[in-house]
Amino acid sequence: MNVTIDKNSGYCFGVEFAIQMAEDELASQPTLYCLGDIVHNRMEVERLHQQGLRIIDRDQLQTLHDCKVLIRAHGEPPETYALALRNNLELIDASCPVVLKLQNRVKHAFDSTTRQNGQVVIYGQPGHAEVTGLNGQTGNQSIIVMSEADLDQIDFARPVTLFSQTTKSTAGFYHMKALIEQRIAAAGGSLESFDANDSICRQVSNREPALRKFAVDYDVVLFVSGRKSSNGKALFSVVNQTNPRSYFIENEQELDEAWLQGAATVGICGATSTPMWLMQRVADRVNEVAESLPA
């Protein structure tokens, strides 16, 4: 059985940068706090926990004083920085540059469109850390949409400025854009008052066509990702549409041997939050199983 790991899968720059910052800090101190999972991958979180990284939530952050806290790649709203000043917290800011740029764009758009009685709409997952940070740039007054039903929150007689969470599906964003255009037309409004911004990270969007090419070359594809990863869900959908013999797994222990029956080639790929060492573990497990399968 031929087993291949997709060389283009694995960490994006932002995640890699955040993990490197965490490891650099932990090299000189026993414990470092991180606000939320540093990456949406349970296996990597557990690995870094063994090195001293302690995940905290927003309630726990309120109680901390005089220590270091890592801000992960997803970014944070302004109130997190204000709290850090009050509690004398040293922030190790690993916010992704792409996310920081988008935060600035959202804030500028909100300040501008508010003067025109407009609305900022964010295509993203409610409660996701990045979306929370983006919403914070608007004083939590943006409209978060994920489905067509969510569009009912928008007043289509007023100007609309649309952005996207950086890790969402490109196809999903343009589908939402088209739906908004239809609603504006139905309300008798003008499309000139609609400003749609494709703010999806190119490292993410470029992986979609690359994964389609990868998935079609193998009998079976194993997509490795944490189940909480928004990016993982979006990219697996692309893979599964291309190759129906695709399976979403979090680690090598979830591999079902029956999936490999009759397969001569197996491709292994993952999300922007999937470490390469974890995909290698899955490959090693596939090779072990292959040796026990009948020729």
Rank of each mutant, 00 (worst) to 15 (best):
residue 292 S to Y: 09
residue 207 R to W: 10
residue 124 G to V: 08
residue 50 Q to C: 06
residue 264 A to F: 00
residue 179 L to V: 03
residue 195 D to P: 00
residue 168 K to P: 00
residue 94 A to Y: 04
residue 41 N to Q: 11
residue 178 A to F: 01
residue 53 L to S: 02
residue 75 G to L: 08
residue 256 D to M: 08
residue 82 A to G: 04
residue 214 F to P: 04
residue 64 L to M: 11
residue 242 T to I: 04
residue 253 Q to H: 15
residue 139 G to D: 11
residue 30 P to Q: 13
residue 253 Q to D: 15
residue 22 A to K: 02
residue 210 A to P: 00
residue 36 G to H: 11
residue 152 D to G: 02
residue 78 P to L: 03
residue 40 H to A: 09
residue 17 F to T: 15
residue 27 A to L: 11
residue 197 N to T: 14
residue 273 S to D: 06
residue 59 D to N: 15
residue 59 D to L: 07
residue 198 D to Q: 03
residue 11 Y to S: 05
residue 177 K to E: 10
residue 215 A to L: 10
residue 62 Q to P: 00
residue 146 M to R: 13
residue 284 D to T: 07
residue 228 K to G: 05
residue 92 I to D: 09
residue 231 N to G: 03
residue 26 L to K: 08
residue 213 K to C: 03
residue 194 F to T: 11
residue 29 Q to F: 08
residue 106 V to F: 02
residue 150 D to P: 05
residue 236 F to H: 10
residue 22 A to F: 06
residue 213 K to V: 05
residue 242 T to M: 06
residue 203 Q to C: 11
residue 230 S to C: 07
residue 31 T to R: 01
residue 41 N to D: 12
residue 291 E to A: 14
residue 250 E to D: 14
residue 200 I to R: 04
residue 130 E to N: 04
residue 103 Q to I: 06
residue 40 H to C: 05
residue 293 L to K: 14
residue 200 I to Y: 07
residue 102 L to C: 05
residue 105 R to V: 00
residue 150 D to H: 06
residue 186 A to M: 03
residue 184 I to T: 02
residue 115 R to C: 07
residue 181 E to P: 06
residue 283 A to D: 03
residue 113 T to P: 00
residue 28 S to Q: 06
residue 44 E to P: 03
